[in-house]
Design a protein around this nucleic acid. Structure first.
Lengths: 244, 244
DNA sequence: TTTAACGACTGAGTGATATTCATCATATAT
DNA sequence: ATATATGATGAATATCACTCAGTCGTTAAA
C-alpha cells in the first residue's frame, strides 16, 4: 500500500517538495491565526506573521496575494472546522430541540473563542463587491446549511412551526447569537449560565414557543391584571387618606 | 435679548470665532461621514477627508486626536440622530406592537442606509478595552434604552410576556436586524416586502409568539375591568392634584 | 502706533507598514 | 555537470497616519 510514498524518488527522511510547501503554508496560516485572534486585524503586521512563521516577509506573498487574502485563508480554516464539528454534533442529537440547542451553544462558544475573526467578516470580506462567489461565501453557505437542514427536518417532522421564511429564521438565529456574544464579552463574570439562557430562549422562539404557550397565557395575563388592580387600589387608598 | 451677540466686539457680518470653529468641525465630520460611508474605514484617507472638508491635513488633528476619534465622532452624530428619531417615532405609536414594529423598521432602514458605520462599531470601537465608559458606549445605552422602555411598558400592561431576561430580548432584537441587513443587501431586488417580513416575524416572536394569542388577552373580561379601574384611579388623581 | 502674545492653521517631514522585485539557493531534470 | 524551475529572501518602494516648526491674522499690552 501507500503507493504515493513508494513512488517517492527520495528515500530521505525529509518530506516531498509538495509536502514541504504545504506545511509552510500551514505554518503561515497558523501564525496569522495566532496574531489575528490575539491582536486583531489592524494591529497585526505582516512582519510579525513572517517572524512567527519563520519565513521572510516576501515569502508571505508567494502564498497569499495580500494581507486580506491571508486573513481570508485563516477564516476559511475556521469555517471548515466549524462546519465539521457542527455536522458531527448535530448527527448525535435525536430531537430537533436538542439539535438546535447544540447548534446554538456550539456557535456561541466558537465565536466567543475566535471573536476577533468575526471582525474580518464584517469589516473586510463582506464589503468586497465580489463576496458572492468567493470562497468565504461558499463556506458560509455550507455552514448555515447545517442549520437550514435541522429546521427543514424539524418542520417536516412537525416538531416546529414553519411559518416564517427560512432566511428570516436563519438571520434571527445567527444574528442573535453574534450580538449576544458582544454582550457576554462585556459582562464581567458569569458565562455558563448566561450562554444557557440565551440558547434556551432562542430555541424556544424558533420552536414556536410551544412548550410555554398553553398554561402561562391566561395565567400570565391574569397575574399582570392583578398587579394593576393592586396598584390602582393603592393609588385610590393614598387619595382617600389625603382627604381632599 | 441676545446678550451674546450684543456683547460681541465686532459688528462684522462674519461669524464669531467660536462659531467659525464649530462650523469647521461640522465640515470635517460631514466630510469624514461621506468618505466613511461610501468607501469604508480602511480605504478612506485623512488626506481625502481634509480635501473634502477644505482644510489642511494637519488641521484634522487640531479637532480630533486620530482617525479613530474622528470616526467615533461621526458615529456619535449618527447615534444621536438615530436615538432622537426613535424616541419621537415611538411616542406617536399607541400600542406596544406598533412601537416594536416602528422600532424594528426604523433600525433596519437606518442601518441599511449607513451600513458602513456599523463596521466601526464592530471592528474598532468594541475592541478598545475602554469601551465601557466611552461616549459611544453611553450613546448606545441611550439608544437601546428606547427599546427597553417599550418592552418594559408592554410587559407592565400585560401586552407581552416578560419571561426571558431583558438583555436577551435586546440582543435578539438588534442582532436579528443587523444580520438581516446583510442578507437584504445581498439580495438583488426586493426590499420593502422583505423588510416588512423580517419586522413582522421579529415582533411576533418578541410579543410572545402566536398571533392568535393577542386577541384573547385583551378581550378578557378581567383586563377590561382592570382598564376601567385604572382609568378611574387616574381620573381621581387628576382631580385631586388640581384641587390641592 | 508698535509690539507682543495668542489662537488657528498649514504642509513638508517622519516613521510605520504593506507590497514589489532583483537576486540568491536548492532541488530536479537532462 | 549543467540547466531549469521552484522556492525563498530582504532591501527598496509606496502609501498613509501622524508630527511639528513655522505662517498668518487678530487681540491685548505698552
Amino acid at each position: 500500500m501507500q503507493p504515493a510514498k513508494a513512488r517517492a524518488r527520495k528515500p530521505s527522511p525529509v518530506a516531498t517538495r509538495r509536502e514541504r510547501v504545504q506545511s509552510k503554508e500551514d505554518a503561515i496560516i497558523a501564525a496569522a491565526h495566532k496574531s489575528l485572534t490575539t491582536r486583531g486585524f489592524a494591529k497585526t503586521t505582516m512582519a510579525e506573521i513572517a517572524r512567527k512563521a519563520g519565513v521572510a516577509e516576501g515569502t508571505l506573498y508567494l502564498y497569499f496575494n495580500n494581507k486580506d487574502a491571508l486573513a481570508r485563508a485563516v477564516l476559511a480554516v475556521f469555517y471548515k472546522r466549524l462546519t465539521e464539528t457542527a455536522k458531527t454534533g448535530v448527527a448525535k442529537c435525536a430531537t430537533t430541540r436538542q439539535r438546535l440547542e447544540f447548534l446554538a451553544r456550539h456557535h456561541l462558544e466558537s465565536i466567543i473563542g475566535e471573536r476577533r475573526l468575526l471582525e474580518l467578516i464584517a469589516s473586510d470580506v463582506r464589503n468586497t463587491q465580489a463576496y458572492e462567489g468567493s470562497d468565504i461565501y461558499k463556506m458560509n453557505r455550507e455552514y448555515v446549511a447545517v442549520f437550514d437542514g435541522v429546521m427543514r427536518d424539524g418542520a417536516w417532522r412537525g416538531e416546529i412551526e414553519d411559518s416564517a421564511a427560512q432566511w428570516i429564521k436563519r438571520d434571527i438565529f445567527f444574528g442573535s447569537l453574534e450580538y449576544s456574544m458582544r454582550t457576554l464579552l462585556m459582562k464581567k463574570r458569569s458565562s455558563k449560565k448566561d450562554i444557557s439562557a440565551v440558547v434556551a430562549e432562542l430555541v424556544k422562539l424558533l420552536m414556536g414557543g410551544a412548550g410555554a404557550r398553553v398554561e402561562p397565557i391566561s395565567g400570565h395575563a391574569l397575574v399582570k391584571a392583578v398587579d394593576r388592580v393592586d396598584a390602582a387600589a393603592s393609588r385610590l387608598e393614598r387619595l382617600s387618606t389625603v382627604k381632599m
